[in-house]
Design a protein around this nucleic acid. Structure first.
Lengths: 342, 342
DNA sequence: CTGAAAGCGCTTACAG
DNA sequence: CTGAAAGCGCTTACAG
């Protein structure tokens, strides 16, 4: 054995065993064409015999590429962000990149820039930031940004490449569905005002209403959690005005469904309810929830695709307008929506 | 400016600006004590002026430490794993480590060892593997394992340090709760047979039943998803035998609740149902679900703690028995369980 | 097709 | 308290 015990083998060990120089080993490892087939085979078997593995730090030091993408996500009892993260990871790995992840508890501009700073210590090549709030996106645009950044779920970010689901289209779709069912108007339990997804869904809802010449009630803001949907649902039940409610996510819809049920309001007989997200549970709500599905995996894929383009594009000509990719939303019809009572 | 445009500053640039050698800069950066306060201040301000950031690859090359922990998680529409990952991340960052994450679609021995291989390319210092199936844990023990590995959710792993929630205790708690309510016995909708969590919960359930001298029905296996709970719930409703059902997770409990409701079986009047996980939705199920909560953040924290101990322990004396840390489960009483009808 | 030389940007002994 | 020297393990021109 030419490798001392207790030390992992280095390129020179492989070279010695194969009877070549370490440059030749490097060539083989990097798929360089100018290596004789026989030499290549000898090197390969030396690599396997030794269980050699290239030192990534040494390689990164000279190539100036770490192959690491930094991801800023946030702490989630929510379905969407978790799915998005997973989509990002799969896409990154398929392209041979590594993912270094920081998850945030609070979604503030400061927390995000702190997270990016932390990741910078690890020499990430670029960032994917899940940026669901306006302040975060704006903070992102302010960053010195020596590395490319792609915002995911970032609404219409000012100066950043963005991938997001078509929240506006989803809100429009949901509302249109209810109007088509003959409802005079549609009430809206919205997300918190500073979330871009909430904004987009509100805008789509409003547009559909306006197009139809329907009255536009004030949106009622929850905090995404079931409890807030419950509270607002109870209020709606008491007012006895709404016949159709578009809820900005399935968790709040669950709460609303429960409040309605407790108040003796039957869904969909008395009131139609539609959600947003299509979480795995919503099919088994009481009643099974009509909702709007988002393709989170696709969002992840496109986000990584965009970032890698930025990373690998030789054409370093700064694009006049940053790329922007919008994934369509899709209506999932179940039984919580029905025609308006005549 | 002593730094050419277009190149990020290196230690030598800082040294030049501060009028010292680059070793002194290194000392300041590493908090080495023997640096004159005045020198240190000069170096610090040079660092800030230049916006200098240490090259992590160069550093890792010589220290042989990357500060990166590899995490193998799996694709999750499930609540628990996502929370666990988040707990791991926070704990790691608090200790100054980075997390490189691979998420798996399929939980097989091969997929896990492939993922670990992928992470090895990045020179991770150790691994945290979320290993919820027996085959995975066993595969882990077989690994060459040049780096420390901690299994999370790994039941009673043969030869690995493990952190997990007390599934047995949780199953026992749930069953005991139902027996204490006067039920003659408790039926069990279990998870898939090859999942360690499912096994642990079954064992706890069985023990509670046996201790009470209650009959032990066959456990009915679902696949964790709502639909399987629905199917089994419908079957139970038809048989009209069960008065109390312990369901191995909240998602299946949701399905069961729905099937029971459709069959006209009232919960908890006719049948009591208890779940496991305490997902955010379960409080708003119909009816709100009594369940068993797991502290996923604590699992993540302990997992990282264990791994870092392994990484940093100077006392390299191989412990005779690998560490094992069990996080208790906790009963959350809501309204889906009630005393047995007399 | 292959090897000798230089260098990436740090840290670690070793002097002083 | 501080600096000159060596070296971590690779890749990249440069020769041949």
């Amino acid at each position: 054995m030419s490798v001392p015990v207790g030390r992992s083998p280095v390129m020179a060990d492989v070279a010695r065993l194969a009877g070549v120089s370490h440059q030749t080993v490097s060539r083989v490892l990097n798929g360089h064409p100018n290596v004789r087939a026989e030499t290549q085979a000898r090197v390969q078997s030396a690599i396997e015999e030794l269980g050699y593995r290239r030192n990534s730090s040494a390689r990164a030091l000279v190539t100036r590429r770490t192959g690491v993408i930094g991801v800023v996500a946030f702490d989630t009892t929510h379905y969407g962000p978790a799915q998005t993260l997973s989509g990002i990871e799969h896409a990154a790995r398929a392209d041979g990149y590594f993912l270094s992840v920081v998850t945030l508890q609070t979604v503030t501009r400061e927390a995000v820039s702190e997270a990016m700073d932390y990741l910078a210590q690890q020499s990430v090549e670029g960032y994917i930031v899940i940026a669901p709030k306006r302040a975060v996106v704006e903070g992102l645009a302010d960053q010195p940004a020596e590395r490319p950044v792609v915002a995911v779920e970032g609404g219409e970010a000012p100066d950043l490449p963005v991938v997001c689901v078509d929240q506006f289209g989803g809100g429009y779709l949901a509302t249109r569905h209810l109007l088509d069912l003959g409802h005079r108007t549609v009430h809206h339990i919205a997300g918190p005002g500073d979330w871009l997804e909430a904004e987009g869904r509100i805008a789509g809802w409003r547009r559909a209403l306006e197009e139809a010449g329907a009255p536009v009630p004030d949106p009622l803001h929850g905090d995404w959690r079931p409890r807030s949907g419950y509270r607002i649902g109870a209020q709606l039940a008491e007012e006895r005005e709404a016949t159709a409610v578009f809820v900005a996510n399935d968790q709040m819809a669950l709460g609303a469904l429960r409040a309605l049920g407790e108040a003796g309001v039957r869904v969909p007989d008395h009131v139609s309810v539609i959600g947003f997200d299509d979480i795995p549970e919503s099919e088994f709500f009481t009643p099974p929830l009509t909702t709007v599905a988002q393709d989170f995996s696709e969002v992840g894929r496109r986000g990584i695709g965009l970032l890698i383009d930025l990373l690998e594009d030789a054409t370093d000509t700064a694009p006049t307008t940053p790329a922007r990719s919008v994934v369509p939303a899709r209506l999932v019809t179940r039984v919580s929506t029905a025609p308006a009572c005549a």
